[in-house]
Structures are given as structure tokens and as C-alpha cells.
């Protein structure tokens, strides 16, 4: 099967010398084309940092990152990269420019991606994320959290990418809205044959969305497992097992 993303012995760190903080330590995993891969772990485990390192947004890194067979270097990313890889951020309240209307966001994006027929494309993009024409000229403050996240997804789709990086795309949303957004993402993946890499702390969400996942702790990948093992609670490492048990439920101590 063709490989979409390969991360090999990835180290990411912030600061230098004695201030150096290692956020990711020799993480390796591969994601096949069309697959949906999850990264789970607690806060500070480095899961989001991996996504940011792939896109050139974070820190200094060493190791190897390959996207669709092409290795990337440093923090600069080529035009082709931006057409292949896009990202949806965690907080839809922070990922849309407060002074830019939906129209401005999408037309600028399409323009940057060198697309033609921008007007028609905006209509189609809004349609595909379940927002009608009526949303086109709204500003972020006129949208709900779920609608904002739909706009952010439309922006990511504008480039017609193959790999979508999802950084906790629903953790800032209400559960009913979360269901709508997750359904939308599943549909889009099916329609467009997208590859997903999804970061989340919610194991149930990852189990719903991903075929395979990696459990991270303190910057390291502790364990990789298929969805079925996650659902069965069959982790091999102690840490992953405890994490699964803890998120399963809160149990009252016998009095």
C-alpha cells in the first residue's frame, strides 16, 4: 500500500542548551494512503507537536519526515506541500481571523493555492461542509463554534489536499456538535479519499474515527495498536492500559 506519511526517529525540541525542552523523542510511525491514524496521549505528551513539526510550524527537529514520498526539510515547506497537506486546528475560536469574513478567508486561501473560478469554488466548498450561501459573508463572531469549525474545514479543503492533520478538532465543541463535525469529517474522507492523522485525548473519538493509533507519553510513542485493540481494551504496555482504564470510567471507591 502506498505511503502517505512517514515519520522516522523524529525529535522535536524548543530552546537551546540548558533551556532545551524535548517535546518529541524519537517518534516513528507511518500512515498509509487513505488510512485514518490517531495520536492519543495526555497533555504534554507531544502529540500536537508532531503535527506542527510536520507542517513546519514548530520548533527545531531532527529525524525524517516524508509526505507522499517526498522528504521535507527544516521549517520551509514547498508549494506542493501546502497542496498536499492541510490542518484543522483545535480551537475554532482562535483559528479564524476575527476581522476576516468567511468569504475573505476562503477567497484568500483559494487565491494562494492558485485556484481559478474562485466564486464558484467558494459556493461549492461551503456546500461540502454543510454551510449554505447565507454564511458566505459572515464574520466569525456571527458564527457558532460548530459553524466556525466547518469554515476551518472548508479552508483546509480549499487546496484539495490528500492528507488532513486534525488537531483535536472537536474538543472545544459541545457533544452534539462534535457528532456533526465527526460525521462531516468521515463523509469528506470517504468522498475525497483523504488520509487523516488525528490528535485527540478522547479515546472514544479516536476509536470512532481511526483505523490505527499510537499512544504517546512524555514525547515518546509508547504503543501502536489497531482500533479493535483499543475497543477491546487490549493494550500491551502498562501505561496504555492504565490510560484506557482511566478514560473508561470513574469508579467510586467502595466505602
Amino acid at each position: 500500500m502506498a505511503q502517505m506519511l512517514k515519520v522516522d526517529a523524529l525529535n522535536v525540541w524548543f530552546g537551546e542548551a540548558h533551556e532545551r525542552v524535548d517535546a518529541v523523542k524519537s517518534a516513528s510511525f507511518t500512515v498509509a494512503k487513505g488510512e485514518s491514524f490517531g495520536l492519543v496521549g495526555e497533555s504534554g505528551s507531544g502529540k500536537s507537536t508532531i503535527l506542527r513539526a510536520i507542517t513546519g510550524l514548530a520548533g527545531s527537529w531532527s529525524g525524517r519526515i516524508e509526505v507522499a514520498g517526498e522528504a521535507v526539510h527544516g521549517r520551509h515547506r514547498s508549494r506542493a506541500f501546502h497542496k498536499t497537506v492541510q490542518m484543522v486546528f483545535q480551537d475554532p475560536y482562535a483559528s479564524l481571523h476575527p476581522r476576516h469574513s468567511v468569504d475573505r478567508v476562503l477567497s484568500e486561501t483559494l487565491h494562494l493555492q492558485g485556484m481559478d473560478q474562485i466564486d464558484a469554488r467558494i459556493t461549492r466548498l461551503l456546500d461540502s461542509v454543510g454551510l449554505g450561501k447565507g454564511f458566505r459573508f459572515r464574520y466569525p463572531h456571527q458564527l457558532s463554534g460548530g459553524q466556525r469549525q466547518r469554515v476551518a474545514i472548508a479552508r483546509a479543503l480549499a487546496a484539495e489536499p490528500q492528507l488532513l492533520l486534525l488537531d483535536e478538532p472537536t474538543s472545544a465543541l459541545d457533544v452534539s456538535v462534535q457528532a456533526e463535525i465527526l460525521n462531516l469529517l468521515s463523509d469528506l474522507r470517504k468522498e475525497r479519499g483523504l488520509t487523516f492523522v488525528m490528535v485527540s485525548h478522547d479515546l472514544a473519538v479516536v476509536a470512532h474515527m481511526c483505523d490505527r493509533l499510537a499512544v504517546m507519553r512524555g514525547g515518546e510513542v509508547v504503543e501502536e495498536m489497531p482500533q479493535a485493540s483499543l475497543r477491546a481494551g487490549a493494550a500491551t504496555s502498562d501505561y496504555a492500559r492504565n490510560l484506557l482504564a482511566a478514560s473508561e470510567s470513574y469508579r467510586r471507591e467502595p466505602v
Partner: peptide
């Protein structure tokens, strides 16, 4: 994030 998002485009 919105600056990061624009950068990614």
C-alpha cells in the same frame, strides 16, 4: 492559529 493556518496555505 489563524496566522498558522494562513501560513499553511
Amino acid at each position: 492559529d489563524y496566522i498558522a493556518a494562513a501560513r499553511l496555505q
